[in-house]
Simulated scan of single mutants.
Amino acid sequence: MRPSTSAHADVEALATRAAGGDSASLDALLRAIRPDVVRRCGRFLLFREDAEEAAQDVLLQVARNIHRFEGRSRFSTWLHTVVANCSRQKYRELKRRSAEQPTVPEAPSAPENRPDPRTTSVIAGSRVDLLEAIERLEQESPHLVAPLVYRDLCQMDYAEIVDRLGIPLGTVKSRLHHARRNIRPWLTSHEL
C-alpha cells in the first residue's frame, strides 16, 4: 500500500526540514517512514526479523546522512537507494555470518517439509537466488545493477530511476532489459 498524496507530501516536507538540521522533523520523519522501510526491506529479505534489522540500518543511515539530502530529487527516491544498499549489505552480512558458523546436522525430516535450498537461504530465508544473481551481475556488469534493483525490487517508476541515475530513459530501459536477460539463467525460479 502506497502512502496517500498528502502523507507523501508531509514526508517530503519533513525530509527537507530534517536535512536543514531540524531534529524534531528528523524524529517525526523516522517514525513516519519506518513501516514503509520495513516493507521495502522485506522485498529483499523475506524473514521479517531480517527485514527489521535492515530497516534499523536504513533508519540509522537516514539519521546520519539526512544532511546529504539536497532536495534535487524526491526524498522517496533518495530513500530507495538507502533501502537497497542497506538490505543488500544485511544479506552479505548474514551470508558471511553463516559461513563463519559451523553447521549443525539436523534431524532428518520429510522431503516435502524441507525448504528448497535453491530458493531459500539457510542464512535468513532470503531470496538467495535473486540476491546471488545480483551479486554476480555486480561483478560482471556493475552498471546494470542499479536499474534492476530500483525497478524490480524497489518498484520505482522510470522517472524516479532516470532522476536518480541521471541517465536517459532509453538507457535505463536498455540496461534493465540486459540485466534481466543476464540474470534469468542464474535464477532457479523466474521472479522477474
Rank of each mutant, 00 (worst) to 15 (best):
M1E: 10
S4K: 10
A9V: 06
D10V: 08
V11F: 05
V11M: 13
E12Q: 15
A15S: 14
A19Q: 08
G20E: 12
G21P: 12
G21C: 11
D22Q: 09
S23P: 00
S23N: 02
L29R: 07
R31H: 06
I33F: 05
D36Q: 12
R40W: 04
G42C: 03
R48G: 02
A54Q: 00
D57H: 11
L59E: 10
I66R: 03
H67P: 01
R68N: 10
R72L: 13
R72Q: 12
R74T: 07
S76D: 13
T77H: 09
T77W: 13
T81P: 00
V82K: 08
V83W: 04
V83L: 03
A84Y: 01
C86M: 12
Q89H: 06
R92M: 04
E93Q: 12
L94R: 05
L94D: 11
R96E: 13
A99G: 06
E100Q: 13
E100H: 04
Q101W: 01
P102V: 07
P102K: 01
T103N: 10
P111T: 08
R114V: 12
R118Q: 10
T119D: 00
S121F: 01
V122I: 10
V122H: 10
S126I: 00
D129A: 01
L130S: 02
L131Y: 04
E132V: 04
E138N: 15
Q139E: 15
E140P: 08
E140M: 02
S141I: 00
S141G: 00
R151N: 08
R151A: 15
D152T: 05
D152R: 15
L153V: 05
C154E: 15
Y158F: 10
E160C: 05
I161G: 07
D163F: 00
L165Q: 07
I167E: 05
L169F: 06
L169E: 13
G170W: 02
V172A: 03
S174D: 12
H178N: 14
R181N: 06
R181I: 04
W186C: 03
H190Q: 09
H190E: 11
H190D: 12
E191Y: 09
